[in-house]
Each structure stands twice: as structure tokens, then as C-alpha cells.
Amino acid sequence: DSCIQFTRHASDVLLNLNRLRSRDILTDVTILVNRQQFRAHKTVLMACSGLFYTIFTDSHKCNLNAISLDPKVDPEGFAILLEFMYTSRLTLKESLIMAIMNTAIYLQMDHVVDTCHRFIKSSDP
């Protein structure tokens, strides 16, 4: 008896999910951040964000196909976090780090918040 562990499987699946998102295939929600719109899959959002998990497990909200975020949320920060959800890569531009961290706090992405904190501390002269 053996088990074959495909070490690339998780990243292969994530790449495919990102391709589906790029092609707007089976995306089922639009996230509105100020005036910008982002299409995504609810399951990916729920898997990565405590806020979206809370929203979409609520029986009254799970069928919504558009969600507006707090107008204070930075659309660029959200775009970077959405990209992270679908690629596992978090782009940290110095000019946006606070916006990214505050957006991660809002989205309840605690591990990303911790990582941003550590990055800021290590970058502080």
C-alpha cells in the first residue's frame, strides 16, 4: 500500500482558480470598493478571509452577488490582497504597506496582518 503525494497539487489548483477568475468563469460575486469592481469566487474569498467567511455563511447574505466594502477601504490594498488569495504572493510596496495592512485587518486576514507588522518592524531604520 502506498500514497502518492503530488507536491504541486495545491499550487496547480490555485493557478487554475486564478485562470478562471481572469476569464470570469464561474465567478459568483462582485466586490465593490469605492468605485472599483472586482469579480471573484465566493469560496476562495471565504477560504482566505474571516470577514467573507462570516458574510457568506450567513443564510441571509450567502446569495448576494454584490458586496460593498466600507468606503474607507483602499481599492489598491484590496486588489493586492485579492491577488494574494489567488496566487499566494503578497506584493508589498512601501507606499501601500499601511493600506494593505489596514485592508487585511478589515478583511480579518490575521496572518497577513502579522506578516505586514513584521515587515514594517524589520524595515524601520
Binding site: 500500500d1 502506498s2 500514497c3 502518492i4 503525494q5 503530488f6 507536491t7 504541486r8 497539487h9 496547480d12 489548483v13 493557478l15 487554475n16 485562470r19 478562471l20 481572469s22 476569464r23
Partner: peptide, 21 residues
């Protein structure tokens, strides 16, 4: 899976969805 012989497969596991058809 304790006691089961685990073999690591490093290659691609599934098809790649193209950027467009």
C-alpha cells in the same frame, strides 16, 4: 496514513486551464 509508504510526485498533478481558449 501512518505506516503507509508515501511517494512524493514532484511533477504537475492536473491540467492547466489556459489563459483563453
Amino acid at each position: 496514513y501512518e505506516g503507509v509508504n508515501t511517494i512524493k510526485e514532484l511533477g504537475r498533478s492536473i491540467h492547466e486551464i489556459p489563459r483563453q481558449d
